[in-house]
Structure formats: C-alpha cells, structure tokens
Amino acid sequence: MLTFTIRRLLLAIPTLLFISLVIFLLVDFAPGSPMSQIPLTVPPEVRLKIIEAMGANEPIFVRYLLWLKQFFYVEPLVLIDSIFGSSYSQGMQRIVSWQSRSPVMDIIVERMPQTLTVVGSAYVIGVIIAVPIGIYSAYRQYSWFDQLGTFIAMIGFSVPTFFTGVVLILVFSVNLGWFPSIYNTSLKVTDWDSFMLQVKQMAMPVAVLALYNASQISRYMRSSMLDNLAQDYVRTARAKGMSERVVVLKHVLRNSLIPVVTVIALGIPTIFGGAIITEQVFKVNGLGALLINAIQGSDLPMVQTLTFIFAVLIVMFNLIADVLYGMLDPRIRYD
C-alpha cells in the first residue's frame, strides 16, 4: 500500500504540471479581456498603460513560467515566512490579482472560512440525512417512504439551486422575515446571540446545498444497499437466525458503504470549489463567488490559481479514495 501511494504521488507531479499548462492555455485563449472592465470613458492610451502595468501583454510562455515560479517557489516561501516569521520571500513578486492588485493567496485564505462553514456543513448535513434515508428506502423498497424519498431526491437533483435559493428567499426572508437573505461575512461568533445569528444566516444556503447533496448521496446509498440485500450471504445470515437489525446494519450496511465512501470522498474537493450559484444567490462571497467574479472580470492570475488548486485537490482526493477503498475492503490490494 505504501509503495502504491508513493508511486501515485510521484505520478501526480507530471499530471499536475500538465494540468496547469492546459488550464493556463485554456484560460488565456478564452475570449474576453481585462480591458472590458475598463469603462469606455478611459482613453485608449491610458488603457494600454493599465494593461502594461498588469503585465498582461507579456508573451504567454513568459507569463506561464512566471506563474510556475510564483506558485511553486514564491508562495511556499511566503507560507514559511508567515509560519516561522522568517524573511526568505522578501522582495519577491507574488501572484497578484488584476482586479484588486493584491496577492491571490491572501484573498483565497480570506475566503476559505465562509466556504468551509457553509458548503462544508451543507455537505456533512447532506451525508447525515442521505445515509439513513438510503438504508431505509432500500430495506423497504417501493414502500411509501421509498417513493417519497425518490420524489424528494428527484426534486433536489433536478431543480437548480438558483431556483430553490430564490424561492427560499422569497418565502423565508421576504414574506416571513425569519432569515436574512444576505450572508454577513464580518459576523464574529463570540456569544450565544451571535451564534444564533450565524445559524440563522447559514440556514437557507445550507438547506439549499444539503438538499442537493443529500439527494445525490441517498440514491447511491440506496442502490448499493439493494445490490447487497440480494446477496447470498444475507440469506445465510438470516438463516443463522440473526436479528434483522444485525443483518441490515452490520452485514449489509458495511458492505454497501464501500462505494458510497468513495463517492463521498470524491465529493470533498467540490466543497473547496465552493458553490458558485448558491454563494452568489446568498452573497456568501466564498471561493465559488471569487472564481465566478474573476472569470467575469478576466482576472487571469486568480482564475488560473484557483482552478489549479481545485485540480490539486481532485487529484489528491482521488488518491485518498483509492487508499480508503483498499482499507475498507481487504480483498482489494494494489501491490
């Protein structure tokens, strides 16, 4: 297992380098220019100066190599400096956003907490809801509970979040006035009252995202349970006189969880990616909103860095999922 992990990690390096190049080229060749953000009242000579100051008119390979150096050399040094208080990165040029002229990494770090709290808790809640629903739906297949579960999952899966989000705002903010429609990122949880405010402002975005996640995972859980319930070992367990509780929760559930755990692990990078639409609707302004904003503004350094970080996370969690798989099912061996 260890050699497998090391081999995979080594293999990830050229993969990621290739991904970074592809992303860079894609982002660069995509139509749109940071110039479109400059109002027409600014004369052409001034526009040209602005673009020059951004470094946006350098040849593409120069910008790519510079980005590689900044991402793999300068930014880690900055991280080391901020942890140990050293000054290795003094005077080095960091990756700077074209929109705000400030270091991209600082903005990402600033955005991380709200994305992790909102999108992360939506994911956890989604999983907590989905697993029991999936189990019971499969155990009582075609019962009214199963039908209802299927119906809700279908709604959660097919109705887009920009619709459910706005519906929730209209019902709970505009008409009932229970929850705020706008997420306050400056809120600091210090006491019970501010904690309740935090819960209130998280309620709607988390509900929207949790519904979506739960509907997805509950379907996986259900089908995986159904596969296992029909197996011979289940009949054997029952024939041995074991209680239904033990049969379902011990024998069947454990075996059914293997593929579901993989799906859950593979979904974790999407938490970091944020929820572009939901974040925009509730103005959570996390990583998803950051990305879409940067795309709209043709802020290439920001788009490039963010997408590359997502790529790293996806490669990493794929590896983690593979390793987990081997640990959960002793029959699977990679060596």
Binding site: I169, V174, P180, S181, I182, N184, S186, V281, K283, A289
Partner: peptide, 20 residues
C-alpha cells in the same frame, strides 16, 4: 458597511422587500 456581490435584482430586494 458596504457589502458586495449578487445581482441587481437581489440588491433591490434587500432594500425594497426584506429591508436588510
């Protein structure tokens, strides 16, 4: 407090309908 983000309709709603 100057908050940013969302769209014009959402911004109008926050003032005209929810009063936030």
């Amino acid at each position: 407090t100057v908050k940013g983000g969302g769209d014009a309709a959402g911004a109008a709603r926050a003032v005209m309908e929810t009063g936030e």
